[in-house]
Design a protein around this nucleic acid. Structure first.
Length: 263
DNA sequence: AGCTCTGTTATCTG
DNA sequence: ACAGATAACAGAGC
């Protein structure tokens, strides 16, 4: 289920074990999601190293072990992390770290996620140079204007899913933002009026931050007033208009929106 | 049985 | 060269 807030939630389960030392116990080297994982580096270096820090950026996670060893994790479509006292092996457990009385597990049935191990003197530069997250202070209105100018011909729904521009925003968040901003997902970015752009900005910020607040801490559902609660229900109805929601593929992704509300 | 899915990327097409 | 669209990846649930 991982978008911005879910990623934050999963990272928290591992981060809770900062200070504990870990060793590599198991890695499914033949699985697609482990193809970037250097097994020999893991076996040799990943031995009794303390979990020093954990970071998230958009849909990415980075865990630091010791001083120079870094584990990057992406959850793809179906990935999840867990921490448990005894490793009760489940189908699709692809990476397991053991430390004292706890096991850190990466599980991913569809294997669209990935894990990778690397050395770096301190936080890697590429991590520090990632573009601003939509909820961060650096993501100000002029920043959004620049992004829009650069892709004025793009369909707005697809635009919101580009991770270089909106790190962490995924399919349901994009639909939520457009619904709250009352913008038809099929519109072109360049067609937005300045009022619409201002409202879009507001909603990008609000949905990103509120999602982390709600889901990031305990995986609770977003507010009842959001589209989120209605979007996958058969015969789902727009909470604003009381009329049926529409589902259609836009930019290759199923999109849910409310005609008469989103213009 | 066939279609769906909260993601990314290589490969197309114009 | 470029942007946008599409197919492929792989499993589980309906």
């Amino acid at each position: 289920m991982p978008e911005l807030a879910e990623v934050y939630f999963h990272a928290g389960k591992w981060k809770a074990w900062q200070g504990q030392s870990f060793s590599l116990l198991h890695v499914a080297r033949n699985k697609r999601c482990c193809r970037s994982f250097d097994v020999s580096l893991g076996r040799k270096e990943f031995c009794d190293l303390p979990l020093t820090a954990g970071f998230t950026h958009g849909k990415r996670m980075l865990f630091q072990f010791g001083v120079t060893l870094f584990l990057e994790v992406h959850l793809g479509m179906t990935g999840s992390l867990r921490a448990e006292a005894n490793w009760q092996e489940l189908a699709h457990d692809h990476l397991v770290l053991k430390g004292g009385e706890v096991f850190l597990v990466f599980n991913d049935p569809r294997q669209f996620g990935r894990v990778a191990l690397s050395h770096s003197q301190g936080i890697p530069t590429w991590w520090e140079e990632l573009p601003p997250e939509p909820g961060s202070a650096r993501f100000d209105f002029p920043h959004l204007q620049v992004l829009c100018r650069r892709r004025s011909k793009a369909v707005i729904k697809s635009f919101l899913l580009v991770q270089d521009s909106f790190p962490g925003i995924g399919n349901w968040m994009a639909d939520e933002i457009l619904w709250q901003a009352r913008i038809d997902p099929r519109r072109r970015v360049g067609s937005l009026s300045s009022d619409e752009l201002a409202l879009l900005y507001k909603k990008v910020r609000y949905v990103s931050r509120e999602a982390v607040k709600r889901i990031g801490s305990d995986y609770s559902d977003p507010p009842a007033s959001w589209l989120f609660r209605h979007r996958w229900k058969d015969g789902g109805v727009c909470p604003k208009t009381g009329r049926p929601l529409v589902r259609e593929t836009i930019g290759g992704r199923t999109t849910c929106w409310s005609p008469h509300w989103q213009l």
